[in-house]
Design a protein around this nucleic acid. Structure first.
Length: 289
DNA sequence: CCGACAACCTGTGAGC
DNA sequence: TGCTCACAGGTTGTCG
């Protein structure tokens, strides 16, 4: 489900609700995620305070601290979470939480300093269990899952020049290159389809046969579409919800994704359908060359 | 290094 | 109604 805009939407929601709260307890109802939740996960995070919530690629990083001498907070470590295809984090107000659902795999109980009550509940639900939950101390760069990621698309490090330089030896389709986390992170199947349409580039075009000028256009379109999607609260195709359990609306603005069999919104030509790396690609062969 | 593919899971919708 | 099949937003690992 979630690509960068959806994860960023969740991050903002969690940040608004959880910063400054302390994890009083964690219950892991099912350890079987993408990787098994470590046996010492609960012991490592309980008692920590949520200092910041950051995003790197599609990972959420909960930066945790503990009370040191004289109540000075000291860095404790990072809770690293990924939503996979179907993961969701939902925060429930104390006393107003619904029954646990199927696939609610973890539940965090959080408290505000100064009062033991009320409790806030943070639930992680993930039907397909492609998501993950880790705890680590130390530097991000020492984490295998974070060590080899390319630049964030919404930073100045991501440019058309970067794309151009990094694709000189790539003869495969640009669409697959764009979805390669070593080249740029956060662009999944939906936004790869959409940004290529907006940039007028055919998804099957060999990555090393695209000019610098066209890559500059593509980098701009990627930034624009991700920002627009974040502003719309992400896309809800099926089951994406933010930290309050509400859907996003950006899917209403798709030009091509999921529109196979329909016509191009720009030129009215029938959209075409193909597959790259097992993923559905939709394009307009008139608008995209 | 690059690229294709299977694998990890459950749920859903289409077609018969 | 019920069965089977294809497919779904992500990422890793293996193999050629």
């Amino acid at each position: 489900m979630p690509e960068l805009p959806e994860v960023e939407t969740v991050r903002r929601g969690l940040e608004a609700k959880l910063i400054g709260a302390t994890i009083a307890d964690v219950s892991v109802r099912d350890r079987r995620l993408r990787w098994p939740v470590a046996e010492d996960f609960e012991r490592r995070v309980v008692g920590s305070r949520v200092e910041r919530i950051e995003r790197r690629s599609k990972y959420l990083l909960f930066r945790l601290t503990r009370a040191g001498p004289n109540d000075v907070p000291i860095t404790a470590g990072t809770l690293l979470a990924h939503l996979g295809m179907t993961g969701s984090f939902i925060v429930h107000e104390a006393g107003a939480a619904p029954e646990l659902r199927t696939h609610d795999h973890l539940e965090f109980q959080l408290v505000r300093s100064g009062s033991a009550l009320p409790l806030t509940l943070l639930r992680y639900n993930d039907p397909r269990r492609f998501g993950s939950m880790h705890y680590f101390g130390g530097e991000d760069s020492a984490q295998p899952l974070l060590a080899h990621l390319g630049p964030e698309p919404l930073t100045d490090a991501f440019t058309g020049e970067h794309l151009y330089e990094q694709t000189r030896r790539r003869t495969g389709p640009i669409k697959q290159a764009l979805m390669d986390n070593g080249l740029v992170v956060g662009v999944g199947n939906i936004y790869a389809n959409e940004s290529l349409f907006r940039a007028g580039i055919h998804p099957a075009r060999a990555a090393n046969r695209i000019s610098l000028a066209r890559y500059e256009r593509l980098a701009r379109e990627v930034k624009t579409i991700l920002n627009e999607a974040i502003a719309a609260g992400g896309s809800t195709l099926k089951d994406f919800v933010n930290a309050s359990g509400e859907p996003g609306y950006f899917q209403l603005d798709y030009f091509v994704y999921g529109r196979e069999g329909e016509v191009c919104k720009v030129c009215a030509s029938p959209l075409k359908h193909m597959r790259h790396g097992g993923r559905a690609t939709v394009l307009c062969s008139v608008c995209q060359r």
